[in-house]
């Protein structure tokens, strides 16, 4: 086969791909490599740059604030991703029904997706306002709590508030791609199952979930990676507080860049990168593995 390719033909084809490759190399891959290298230097503004090997990483190991943000990031991902997948699946199932105004409903679900995360965060900041926000109005008028709740002011409620706002922003994405997966399942299968006398739950667990698995893995992958690198919401809603309890790894690294400690900030970034990369490979393996046994 290879003999059929002429050099001219190949170089012509690569010319079409070249702009893409150049952009991705210069503005993504080189920066990542640069960050990796920087993480092995003491690289602070106004000090001479000095190679220190893995010292930044050794410092990370005993940095309790780093571990706090590590723990927050993992916990946030572990709580919000399953919640978003669950609700996203529920919304997708609803949208897949023959409802009146189906198109309109789909648009409603898309709206949070279209709003920039930083602006959405500002809206939620007002919703969580202690004195006159919507959240306290609802909680108090339904009698869940007599006193207003300081949503963003205590670490437990701040965590909860972040999970809810993140879910609002990202469920549309999950719902839309799961809906695509659902509508690809032929109705015949369900009709046959109904004739065979199976109930809703049996159909859900024996047909819907298994056939949806590839799409679910994709949604899981995208959502996990996104949740791990959460930044915008935290920047606006909590600034990592109270007491550093909602500082994500992205935000922790950013704080070091802000004070021009590039070496240490890069070490934090590389750690996050490694976690995200490891998880995505694990998921892809998982997906492939499942394809093989199907």
């Amino acid at each position: 086969m290879i003999k059929k390719y002429t050099l001219k033909e190949l170089s012509e084809s690569y010319a079409f791909v070249a702009p893409l490759i150049i952009f991705v190399l210069v503005f993504i891959l080189f920066p990542v490599i640069g960050t990796f290298l920087t993480s092995m230097f003491r690289d602070v503004a106004f000090l001479t740059k000095e190679f220190i090997g893995l010292d930044n990483y050794k410092k990370l190991l005993v940095d309790s604030r780093f571990w706090q943000s590590f723990q927050f990031t993992i916990l946030f991902t572990a709580v919000s991703v399953p919640l978003e997948l669950g609700l996203g699946l529920l919304f997708a199932l609803l949208l897949n029904e023959f409802l009146p105004f189906r198109g309109l409903l789909r648009v409603c679900v898309l709206i949070p997706w279209a709003i920039p995360a930083a602006i959405a965060a500002r809206i939620w900041e007002l919703i969580y306002n202690f004195h006159y926000g919507l959240a306290n109005f609802v909680v108090q008028s339904f009698g869940f709590s007599r006193e207003p709740i300081n949503w963003l002011g205590t670490s437990g409620t701040a965590f909860f508030s972040l999970v809810v706002s993140d879910a609002w922003k990202t469920i549309p994405f999950v719902a839309i791609i799961l809906l695509a997966g659902l509508s690809a399942i032929p109705d015949e299968i369900y009709r046959q199952a109904q004739v065979d006398g199976s109930n809703f739950w049996q159909r859900f667990f024996r047909i819907t979930l298994p056939l949806l698995r590839p799409v679910l893995v994709v949604a899981l992958l995208f959502r996990t990676i996104d949740a791990l690198r959460i930044f915008d919401l935290i920047y606006v809603l909590t600034k990592g507080g109270p007491g550093g309890s909602t500082t994500s790894l992205s935000f922790y690294g950013y704080k070091y860049f802000l004070v021009s400690d590039f070496g240490y900030g890069s070490a934090v970034s590389v750690t996050l990168f490694a976690i995200a990369f490891g998880l995505s490979i694990a998921y892809l393996r998982l997906g492939k593995f499942k394809e093989e046994i199907l």
């Binding site: 891959l29 920066p31 960050t35 990676i225 992205s250 950013y254 890069s266 970034s269 995200a276």
Partner: peptide
């Protein structure tokens, strides 16, 4: 390209800033 899109932005932004 798919792998690239999974990089966290924070691992790019400091280098970009100085670049």
């Amino acid at each position: 390209v798919l792998a690239i899109s999974m990089f966290p932005q924070i691992s790019i932004v400091s280098y970009l800033y100085r670049f």
